[in-house]
Nucleic acid binder design. Structure first.
Lengths: 329, 329
DNA sequence: TTCGGCGATGTGATCGATAACATGTGCCGG
DNA sequence: CCGGCACATGTTATCGATCACATCGCCGAA
């Protein structure tokens, strides 16, 4: 930086002003400095800037280390959004979302002087950790507890589940079964709620929830039970991989989809259109979630105050071939 | 740090020595300093350290922004391995792997004074960029060009493809068709080579390569063509999602898998066991790739010299139900 | 005419760590 | 009994930026 200043015939402070777009610099001076910068191939040292300002141009993300489609897509979408805004993303993967792990990951980020932190906290166990975090750092939660008063962005799980269920009911089914995600996930809870609400509104009978985790394996197991109950004609699976397992179980027991049983999933994984049959599902807009999260975070960073705004992103129904009326049998 | 020094009754330099495990500190002094540190809840400022040493405890990863299973798993595995070694990972996502984008991402990482960089460079277009990178920074490439003399870790694509093809031949098929990935991906090229080698060794006829991208959609299109050729009895798909599309195309045209047509995939995505039928596939060991990469990177960081070692990780055949002999029809 | 004020720029202190060198002990061998 | 050396520790400079404040013209209003 000193070299640049010398070449441009100004002080290091003026170079700093040009770099940071400070208004009070003469056009001519600004140009001289710019020329010197590009001639020397000068690149500012972020570490020095971080040291003096106490903040870096890095955003920290704490996420459960997983290749689950939802969280992974969210992460990628957020990385993109952040890159566009000129931020780098530092990922603090964590194997369990408990208080200790999250706390450690957050502190590690604070050591690096990140400008803000995003916690992808889809499970109940993350709550306690979030309650004990320092309040003065910009922080936004994705998929966290809707009941917590904190800055939060989520997909509207209940609305999506409701739409899926209503779509099945509208096709003529008298009720809809549900294979749910793990009960400690807010996503799973929200989807159960939406499903139940749609059934209640329609005055339909509410079958017991079939608990599963998010894997195709557990969907398959649930599907094996559903397949042997002849009165089951419609199933709403809490995600597409569960649906995949269900499709296979149905196929093995000779129950055709959608002629005998209709199935709707959630997530719209890229392969969903190529399941047998192509899966009708709910598509959450991960990019919108990422953009919104980034916006809130940047807002907090600029204002210096942490808000408790809540944003909910409505998902969208994608109709394919896995739903038909019960009469088709 | 000054506060800690005062409380412990020593100089800040001694505190620094304790922090960095310097040997020449008396046991008793060391304990006093440790006590002061924990009493004050002191946490060192990484930015300051990075400023003075010129290196941070951060590793940069440049990857194509995608939710493709392979790259995404690799990234997660690497983040875990790095976290275990006490490093944070900063991800520089890039939408296209061309010279300009990679260059920019790398420079951004250098601005942050990362300790080392990993480039996940599975396509040919990344080569040019890699040739023009500064040579003095520790850098390891994953899935890069096997022909480039650089530090590189890859899955042994050819060996996996060969194993898959041999398995199909061993089941009694006279030849094996191949639906490949995009021709600018080294992974795709390696898999084609392995497939071709296995056919050549067995003296089997070599059918034309069916070009596709990695998506289920393109697998479906290829599958539609394969399904109408009655002499096609065995297909090796370059990844599991392609295989999924093929399975659906076969199912639509009434060709049963595995009775009429056998299919093998590549990747072993978690859902592969729940395709219809469960997919026989090749499982690459992403964790081994990540561990090896990290090891090489740390080696370079410590030694200060950049090596050109190459490591290849052999994948493994996972047998399920999508392969049978041609006689079964 | 004069002085307040603002715009453009420079000067020195500062962030929090490490590096290089200096200092002060105590022990050993000659 | 003393020089010298290893060990423990302290002092000061340094990394590369920003911040707070000082300075210097210059313009317009009293």
């Amino acid at each position: 930086m000193t070299d640049v200043a010398r070449l441009a015939g100004v002080s290091h402070q003026t170079v700093s002003r040009v770099l940071n777009g400070h208004p009070n610099v003469r056009e001519q001076t600004r140009n001289r400095v710019r020329a010197a910068i590009s001639e020397l191939g000068y690149r500012p040292n972020r570490a020095a800037k971080a040291l003096v300002t106490g903040r870096s141009q890095v955003l920290g993300v704490v996420a459960q280390n997983s290749t689950l489609y939802g969280p992974a897509s969210l992460l990628v979408a957020f990385e993109n959004a952040a890159a566009e805004a000129g931020f780098t993303v530092s990922v603090g993967n964590v194997s369990v979302l408990d208080r200790h792990s999250i706390g450690r990951a957050v502190e590690q980020h604070l050591d690096q002087r990140v400008a803000g932190i995003v916690v992808i906290a889809p499970v109940a166990s993350a709550n306690e950790a979030l309650d004990h975090l320092p309040a003065d750092v910009p922080l936004v939660t994705i998929d966290g507890d809707p009941a917590r008063p904190a800055a939060l962005v989520t997909v509207d799980q209940a609305a999506g589940a409701r739409e899926a269920t209503k779509f099945l009911l509208a096709a003529g089914h008298s009720t809809v079964w549900h294979v749910s995600g793990p009960s400690d996930w807010f996503d799973a809870i929200g989807r159960i709620e939406g499903w139940r609400a749609a059934l209640t509104e329609a005055g339909a009978e509410i079958p017991p929830v079939m608990a599963a985790d998010w894997t195709a394996a557990s969907g398959y197991r649930a599907g094996q039970m559903l397949a042997r109950m002849p009165d089951v004609t419609a199933v709403f699976a809490a995600n597409d991989h569960l649906a995949l397992g269900i499709l296979r179980a149905m196929s093995e027991r000779g129950r055709r989809v959608p002629e005998d049983v209709s199935v709707v999933g959630f997530d719209d994984v890229p392969e969903a259109a190529y399941f047998i049959p192509p899966l009708t599902t709910i598509r959450p807009d991960f990019e919108a979630v990422a953009r919104t999260t980034l916006g809130m975070l940047l807002g907090q960073i600029e204002s210096g105050s942490s808000t408790s705004t809540r944003h909910t992103i409505a998902p969208e129904l994608v109709v394919r071939d896995s739903v038909a009326g019960p009469g088709q049998r």
